[in-house]
């Protein structure tokens, strides 16, 4: 089944994008290999969170520079992604450790029950890393969209001021925000419908404290927050990088 889907996807992308479509296909494949490598390296015992951060950086490098080339536009998109990655990492780390969202719930016992659980590898870290990798796709997507749109504004109006350029970035960001949130919502909720069939009669009280439910909701909210945070950050960085200014020059503002 999957091999047929791969072939259909390849030809569809070829049809839509020609050369670029082929590139898109191989970037997709590469990201896939990256995720699987991530799992293998974890199985070999490397630290889950460090690995997740490295994978996120690599994924951004691949999908920003390989697909869109190297320019001021992609450079600012990349820096934006890195900043948000860091902020989101801190947020996930604090919440994840406190909310005890590591590991599996009772629902998974049927599937994983045959396994030995004593694997000497911290599952909370795995979940935290997984959330990071999960969020990186949308961070990259939004960052590129905002930077591309700002670049276009600049090309159409080369004398634009930094503040106006920043505002145009924020405007574009606000426009794509609702569709991004929609996309994420459905992508993440789709395989979660079964949870509610399992717990037909669960009370609200236990639902909102339930491990598997909180895992999914926290992931959903974290990706939302990431996709919103990237908008002002990329707008700010692009407004400086695209106009060939340094990102940090607070002295100038004081004058």
């Amino acid at each position: 089944m999957n091999s047929i889907l791969w072939i259909i996807l390849f030809f569809l992308l070829l049809f839509i994008g020609r050369q670029r479509g082929v590139k898109t296909f191989f970037t997709f494949l590469l990201s896939m290999i990256l995720i699987i490598t991530y799992i293998i390296l974890m199985a070999l015992g490397f630290n889950a969170i460090t690995l997740a951060l490295i994978i996120c950086v690599l994924a951004s490098l691949i999908s920003i520079f390989m697909l869109n080339g190297y320019s001021n536009k992609t450079k600012s998109a990349f820096i934006g992604v890195m900043v948000v990655l860091f902020i989101i990492f801190v947020l996930i780390y604090i919440i994840g450790k406190r909310a005890k969202i590591g590991g599996f719930g009772d629902e998974a016992l049927e599937t994983i029950g045959a396994f030995n659980f004593d694997i000497n590898y911290n599952m909370t870290n795995v979940i935290i890393g997984m959330f990071l990798v999960s969020a990186i796709g949308t961070i990259i997507d939004t960052s590129i969209s905002v930077a591309t749109a700002m670049n276009e504004v600049l090309e159409n109006n080369p004398k634009i001021k930094e503040k106006e350029l920043y505002k145009s970035g924020m405007n574009v960001g606000a426009d794509i925000l609702s569709t991004t949130i929609n996309t994420l919502y459905f992508a993440l909720i789709s395989t979660f419908i079964g949870f509610f069939m399992w717990h037909r009669t669960i009370s609200i009280e236990s639902l909102i404290n339930y491990k598997v439910f909180t895992q999914n909701i926290i992931l959903l909210l974290i990706t939302f927050i990431a996709s919103i945070l990237i908008i002002p950050i990329t707008s700010f960085i692009s407004s400086r990088v695209l106009l060939n200014k340094k990102i940090y020059s607070f002295k100038k503002i004081k004058r």
Binding site: L9, L13, G21, F28, M32, L67, G137, I140, D141, S190
Partner: peptide
Amino acid sequence: VGTMINVMLFTCF
């Protein structure tokens, strides 16, 4: 199309 299928991959897979 490229970024969209990448989002799908990272969020779902």
